[in-house]
Design a protein around this nucleic acid. Sequence first.
DNA 1: TGGTTGTTTGACCGGATGGTCAATTCCGGG
DNA 2: CCCGGAATTGACCATCCGGTCAAACAACCA
Lengths: 202, 202
Amino acid sequence: MTKPRTRIQQRNSDVILEAALEVFSAHGFRGATLDQIAAVAGLSKPNLLYYFASKEAIHVALLSGLLDTWLDPLRAMDPEGDPVAELLAYVRRKLELSRDYSRESRLFANEMLQGAPRIRAALEGDLRDLVQQKAGVLQAWMDQGRIAHMHPVHLIFSVWALTQHYADFEVQVQAVLGSDGADPYPEAAVYLETLFRRLLTP
Amino acid sequence: MTKPRTRIQQRNSDVILEAALEVFSAHGFRGATLDQIAAVAGLSKPNLLYYFASKEAIHVALLSGLLDTWLDPLRAMDPEGDPVAELLAYVRRKLELSRDYSRESRLFANEMLQGAPRIRAALEGDLRDLVQQKAGVLQAWMDQGRIAHMHPVHLIFSVWALTQHYADFEVQVQAVLGSDGADPYPEAAVYLETLFRRLLTP
DNA sequence: TGGTTGTTTGACCGGATGGTCAATTCCGGG
DNA sequence: CCCGGAATTGACCATCCGGTCAAACAACCA
């Protein structure tokens, strides 16, 4: 549950979670099968269930490890720093997460779409608390006239929406931007920086 | 295929599509079962398959009807109108779609997450063409100095991302904004209007 | 009313899938 | 080297699920 003991346990748990991430993010929870995950992991199906009690247990293990990583950039926003710089850094880090961890983003999006049956508690607990706290920081910055006035929580929503879009709707982005396999992220980074700079500057 | 003939066919087709939308949007294609859809529709499973050849046929029928409706507000953007007003109207209409057709939005998002296996062609065809055309309009407005300069396609992406977020991540929005069942859409409308107004004004 | 066409369903099928288990193999420590 | 626990797996099970089909039923018209 907490820390596997032997090296084999550690390695196989990691291999299974990596394979499960690949399959779950591509097909959703219901669409993924244990056989697929086992094949990707290079293990037999009963062997999977030797390490995790059930398909759901694998899914939960993935999700619970995910939310923390996902919120780290928001946590890193420093109330003592320069407001615009802090927010732009947050946007940049979040966009990097979308680029480097797009499977995690899609896994998370899948869970949200289904109504978050497995992490609702975390959303209404840790997530809500962190957002409310950081919204307070944003509000203070606005009251000090250091960034423009707006609804701080919706401001955070817009960072999430704009960055995650490039991971979750990757197919659409690629389809629209053309068949040339050009990486859309550099352009996106430039675009989002100008967007938030114009939005925030008082 | 095109138009059902009898009144019974028309009514039952509609009932099935409505039920399928409910179930598919909540559980995804693979997560939905014909029995669930039949139960919601108030019909028997074989009766469903009397009207649609397969589970996939129902899904395709839903999706193909959807993309057009979804793009209507973008199509309605008038090159002859006032640029900022046209774009703000587009944002407002798109946000209304998210509010009034959130199930459709989630159905679409589900399809995107899976890599759009059933509508990739439409994305690379009609959708791409329309976006490129409207991007041209936006570019002209920028060249005339009527709105600020930025990447026009990413500007469209940001409209999609920001509006659809409220439908697709509804649980998260509700969880963060608190348990009071307050409607987040009025606030969202205000926020998005100020965001795009500041972004676009030259 | 009778017949023809359109509609509905109970029963069933075959394959997929999550999960179990007894038996076997592997491996590290004494 | 050997033994006990850890790791692995082939075979199997029960259930679910998409889809079929023949038979029953309803609707419409002559």
